[in-house]
């Protein structure tokens, strides 16, 4: 299968399960180059898992994930590590190394992977920090950062090696309105300035829809819809409409699977 010029990541017929629970049941996703692709779905649908599959940290039971026309699941470890240098990933928690300063965190990938002299590393790190507006915070420790700042530092670290693609895991979750706005704007502007391919995994509909070029909605192991944000918000598929409009009950039921309420009430069991 050949990746066309415009598709950076091409996922086909992806199956993944953990123990007995099936997390993906044959999904197809195309991530276009230079665009912002959002992958949305309720918590626990496997969004983080999907990013780890793309990063090669997990192996699918079936299916292919082409990055630049090369299949990630069948790559040798060495090759995989090479490919990962072209991907940046922002974990939900930031995943900053807690035993070093903000500066050293961003310098870390440069020091590990390049032979650059310290003076140049310093310049590069300050450039990245300037881009996320935290040049003044370089001496702080990760524990002294607010959640939003930690994500910005993680963003600066993710772009330290000038990757082609950055994956964001729930970048907006748990942010106050101001840092939410900062992050939204930062992702959008960096995407343009650095010609990044961005993948945002999120359940914050409004913010994500506002900056995404393309949206996929996952539910119960399947892609239930994809298209531009406008197409999604006008969709009349019950799955998408429930998710996009945040309705409590619908195809994704409000109640966790259980026997009927009446049977339960009258069964007379004290504990189950």
């Amino acid at each position: 299968m050949q990746a066309t010029d415009k598709t950076l990541v091409r996922i086909r017929d992806l199956h993944f399960s953990r123990g007995h629970s099936k997390i993906f049941n044959g999904i197809d996703i195309d991530i276009p180059k230079g665009k912002i692709t959002a992958i949305m779905g309720p918590s626990g649908t496997g969004k983080t898992t999907l990013l780890k599959l793309i990063g090669g940290q997990l192996k699918p039971q079936q299916g292919t994930i082409y990055f630049h026309g090369e299949n990630i699941p069948t790559m040798k470890t060495k090759k995989l590590y090479e490919v990962r240098k072209k991907m940046g990933m922002l974990f939900q928690s930031g995943a900053l190394l807690t035993d070093m300063s903000v500066f050293d965190n961003i310098a870390f990938p440069l020091r590990e992977h390049t032979e650059l002299p310290e003076v140049m590393i310093r310049d590069l790190v300050l450039m990245k920090l300037q881009a996320v507006g935290l040049r003044g915070a370089r001496h702080l420790n990760p524990s002294q950062l607010s959640g939003g700042m930690a994500r910005r530092v993680a963003f600066a670290r993710a772009i330290a090696l000038d990757p082609e693609m950055v994956m964001f895991d729930e970048p907006f979750t748990g942010q106050d309105p101001i840092s939410m706005g900062v992050l939204v704007q930062l992702i959008r502007s960096m995407n343009e300035a650095l010609e990044l391919t961005s993948v945002i995994v999120s359940h914050d509909i409004e913010e994500t829809m506002a900056i995404a070029d393309k949206v996929y909605v996952i539910s119960q192991g399947k892609i239930v819809g994809h298209g531009s944000p406008e197409e999604m918000s006008q969709s009349n598929s019950p799955w998408i409409s429930q998710f996009v409009h945040g309705e409590a009950d619908g195809p994704v039921p409000f109640h966790y699977q259980a026997s009927s309420f009446k049977d339960d009430i009258f069964s007379g069991e004290y504990v189950d």
Binding site: K52, G55, Q57, E82, F91, A95, L97
Partner: peptide, 10 residues
């Protein structure tokens, strides 16, 4: 997730 983070930084 620092260990996963390291892996993703190659």
């Amino acid at each position: 997730e620092q260990l996963s983070g390291l892996e993703m930084m190659a």
